[in-house]
Design a binder for these strands. Structure first.
Lengths: 150, 150
DNA sequence: CACATGTTCGCAATATTATTGCACAATGGG
DNA sequence: CCCATTGTGCAATAATATTGCGAACATGTG
């Protein structure tokens, strides 16, 4: 992992649709050599995957919300059970176990308020071991970055 | 935007490194026809961009945290100024203006606690108009999904 | 320093893929 | 029913990815 690898990773995180030939010339390598680095980075697991990032507003997921959850029973098994149910929901984009007053933080991407209503009823009830939950609506998205600069 | 487009978008969100030829056969189209759909989806802005998702742990960003921020002065201009400063930080992966007790929620990806210390001192001071902030550490990441299923 | 070992490199040949023009089929108003 | 629009497949071409190979380079050892 040298400076050329880091350059390539930064390029890929910004735009992975570029051709190998193109990136090779930018980092000053021959296409073959550059390709072998890319293959190595993928095999080694530094590059998890290559994905398309859609415009959520153009595919009907316009509402974002954050939910902080406190469980009634805090044991590892209860935690795991709740997280399993939450992550199974496609409206749940992020799910974290956290320190502090709350046990879990979820980020949601929703089509409309009805979906929030239905999901809340499904995930945050007595049956799911939830003592308290607070829903916070996102008014403005100032940054959403998948890249990790190096 | 028909059912084939949606299929393509779901494929691309899971793995955008697949070849056009490959995806064409999966959705039952000729490569040329499939390619023209992909080009259209990109030009129309439904596909924002194609990016590489790295393994944060393998590039030294192992700590995640969430920070909720309440500003002292709540005007639009103050909000904008704080968000500008926050989004400029590469440790800040997500930044949202939100409803409720707090004004802003940030997600952080950090190398170590020193970086959290330095960033907190830089972003959450009197000079930056912060009345109160609460830092919550992420213990476990149960889900982080860029895809928006359709 | 000389040498052995392993890694990375560029070149060139080949395979695979992307891209485009064109004619034809499907679709949806008027 | 006809026309205009859009989408489709085919085929030719251009661009790109992929691999073998020998040379350059770095590294560690006697």
């Amino acid at each position: 992992m040298d400076s050329i690898d880091r350059k390539l990773l930064n390029l890929l995180q910004r735009d992975a649709s570029r051709t190998n030939v193109d990136m090779a010339s930018e980092v000053g390598l021959s296409p073959s050599s550059c390709l072998r680095r890319l293959q190595r980075l993928r095999r080694s697991g530094v590059i998890n995957r290559i994905v398309a990032i859609l415009n959520p507003a153009k595919v009907g997921r316009v509402i974002k919300a954050m939910v902080t959850v406190e469980l009634k029973l805090h044991g590892e098994e209860h935690m795991r059970r709740f997280l399993k149910a939450a992550t199974a929901e496609e409206a749940v984009s992020h799910a974290y176990a956290v320190t502090g007053e709350n046990d879990i933080v979820l980020m949601l991407r929703l089509r409309d308020m009805e979906e929030l209503d239905a999901l809340s009823e499904k995930l945050f009830t007595d049956q799911t071991n939830v003592a308290r939950y607070i829903t916070t609506m996102v008014i403005r998205t100032a940054k959403e970055e998948t890249a990790v600069l190096m």
